[in-house]
């Protein structure tokens, strides 16, 4: 669930805007979103790395029961995307469900990902779309 609290939105902005992940200096693996410890070996010796902006679809789900924020873009396609160095789960935009296949090439794109009602903060971040 996307947090709509301004401090949380603010703290997470850089990795949501620029696709910044973490590389573990102990086991060498990369994860996204950044965590304080490596999810594979628990090491806290991590460095920030910019992830590739192009990847391919490993799997996807089509969500028909969407949050009321997302009603205008229903159904929402959620993708598990292979970026080579790591995998990431993100919404797929600018596509109809029939446009997406396992292996489809996607690229990161900056979009609105949510908002706190009509008067609260707007949450921006990365989605993926078919490569242009």
């Amino acid at each position: 669930m996307l947090s709509k609290s301004p401090p949380v939105v603010w703290r997470s902005r850089i990795y949501r805007y620029r696709l910044i992940g973490c590389k573990c200096k102990n086991c060498g693996r990369v994860h996204y979103p950044p965590a304080s410890a490596c999810p594979y070996c628990s090491s806290r010796d991590l460095e920030e790395v910019e992830l590739p902006r192009v990847g391919k679809v490993l799997s996807y789900s089509i969500v028909y029961a969407v949050d009321s924020d997302a009603r205008e873009r229903s159904p929402v396609i959620l993708g598990l995307i292979d970026l080579g160095v790591t995998r990431i789960i993100a919404e797929i935009t600018d596509a109809n469900p029939e446009d997406i296949k396992i292996g489809s090439q996607l690229e990161a794109v900056f979009r609105r990902i949510g908002e706190d009602g009509e008067t609260g903060v707007i949450i921006y971040g990365l989605k993926f779309r078919p490569v242009i």
């Binding site: 900056f110 979009r111 921006y124």
Partner: peptide, 16 residues
């Protein structure tokens, strides 16, 4: 503009 776009997101794309 699509449902997840606004003048800021379009401005980001043009700027990239």
């Amino acid at each position: 503009a699509g449902p997840d776009e606004d003048s800021t997101t379009m401005g980001v794309e043009a700027s990239i």
